[in-house]
């Protein structure tokens, strides 16, 4: 499970490096990527005061807003 997350992040970095207009450095400005790193950081805290699954789902809920919703 953890290996899959590591491999996904590596795959992203490799894809950025392979891109013709690449500067060779993975962008940190993609908000989706930023969200993933925030999630990983959140899971690395040892003393969770709230269930981690709940925290993770709330993190992803709070950071995406669709137009047209009420």
């Amino acid at each position: 499970m953890l290996l899959e997350i590591a491999a996904t992040l590596d795959r992203y970095d490799d894809a950025v490096r392979r891109h013709p207009q690449s500067t060779g450095t993975p962008s940190i400005e993609d908000p989706r990527l930023d969200l993933i790193y925030r999630a990983v950081e959140m899971l690395s805290r040892r003393n969770a005061t709230q269930y981690r699954t709940e925290q993770l789902l709330e993190l992803f809920s709070a950071n995406v807003r669709e137009p047209g919703r009420v």
């Binding site: 789902l57 709330e58 992803f60 809920s61 709070a62 950071n63 995406v64 669709e66 919703r69 009420v70």
Partner: peptide, 11 residues
């Protein structure tokens, strides 16, 4: 589903 669930369930 996904990022819409929390808001949609409250609604």
């Amino acid at each position: 589903h996904l990022e819409d669930k929390l808001h949609g369930t409250k609604r």
